[in-house]
């Protein structure tokens, strides 16, 4: 907790600076978020717009940025807090992009999982008869991190810009891929943009209303039994509880409920990873041990839960699956 004030201050300044400079929370200028869609040939306009808000593609960079921040902490006593903070600002503005890109390339596992998850979601939507559009390089960020950190004023221009871009897509329904973006679009955007009228639905809500099933051959490729880790935002903020259970059950997967489930779910610790990785890791360890008691395969529906619980795969022996990864196992790239 030493230097906490300055570290939070630094995190906020970096985030705001990145968004101002590039429109991206990580400050990356070259698009890194649309490669997963190569080969899908998704149109840029349509009634249903698939909106990732870059959350899954961001994961390898988030993992590396967090590790780089943690690695710099021991320098605090040597450099002094203010010198380090200033250095971090300059480094972030000038050198973060190449450094992050090089390091993120090494994060092969999370890169593959994030790509598989989005691919699985898109393939399952196609398989269930949903025609979705995707903005590709033009896809904006939702501003959720600014909102979570209490940057009420700084988030407003992001909301305006993103809201306008989404409205210009002509979509009547926006299909989101993660609970945090769903919450922003459903609950926060309408408060700031009275004209923001598209219907916002999480992809699992959409899939749960279809008759998406698999044959026995496909079912044999999937985990037989999983324990479900409910996301706090998905359950307590959005009230979306049964959708993932319905989708998994239709794929022939037995879903086990852990001790703290549904509206009583326990947090993965992810939201404080940016500033307090040790605390975040302790919270994740408690939840991981709890989940590992029930099954060796854990399913999550949130990218933040995925990267935070993944850290404890080795010490608990569990395998954490994003629900999108399960869909990828079932439907591959083309929903076939």
């Amino acid at each position: 907790m030493q230097h906490s004030k300055l570290l939070v201050s630094q995190a906020l300044r970096t985030l705001c600076g990145n968004l101002d400079r590039t429109g991206d929370p990580l400050g990356l200028k070259r698009p890194y978020w649309h490669d997963w869609a190569d080969g899908f040939n998704l149109p840029a306009r349509g009634e249903n717009l698939l909106f990732t808000a870059r959350m899954y593609p961001m994961l390898p960079y988030v993992v590396q940025a967090t590790e780089m921040t943690a690695a710099a902490r021991p320098l605090l006593p040597a450099l002094g807090v203010k010198a380090l903070a200033r250095l971090a600002e300059v480094v972030t503005a000038l050198a973060a992009e190449p450094l992050l890109r090089i390091k993120a390339r090494k994060a092969q596992d999370i890169r593959r999982r994030a790509t598989d998850a989005l691919t699985g979601m898109a393939a399952a939507l196609q398989r269930s008869g949903q025609h979705v559009a995707y903005l590709g390089e033009e896809e904006p960020y939702s501003g959720v991190l600014l909102y979570d950190l209490g940057m009420a004023e700084a988030v407003q221009p992001v909301i305006r810009k993103t809201g306008e871009r989404l409205a210009a897509s002509g979509a009547r329904t926006i299909i989101t891929t993660d609970p945090h973006t769903t919450f922003m679009l459903k609950e926060i955007y309408p408060q700031h943009l009275p004209g923001f009228t598209p219907e916002v639905r999480h992809y699992l809500e959409v899939l749960a209303e279809t008759d998406l099933t698999v044959d026995e051959k496909v079912a044999s490729r999937l985990p037989r039994k999983v324990v479900l880790h409910d996301s706090c935002v998905m359950t307590r903020d959005l009230g979306i509880i049964d959708a993932v259970r319905t989708v998994l059950a239709r794929l022939g997967i037995e879903v086990v409920e852990p001790r703290n489930a549904k509206n009583d779910t326990a947090c993965c610790g992810g939201p404080v990873e940016y500033a307090y990785p040790a605390l975040s890791r302790s919270v994740a360890a408690i939840r991981s041990r709890e989940l590992a008691e029930f099954a060796e395969n854990v399913v999550v529906t949130c990218p933040i839960c995925l990267i935070n619980l993944m850290k404890h795969e080795a010490d608990t022996g569990m395998r954490v699956w994003d629900a999108g990864e399960i869909l990828f196992q079932a439907f591959g790239r083309n929903g076939a």
Binding site: C232, R236, C267, G270, V272, A275, Y276
Partner: peptide, 9 residues
């Protein structure tokens, strides 16, 4: 204050 997870449990 900033270590609150905002999980609403």
């Amino acid at each position: 204050l900033y270590s609150c997870l905002q999980c609403r449990r």
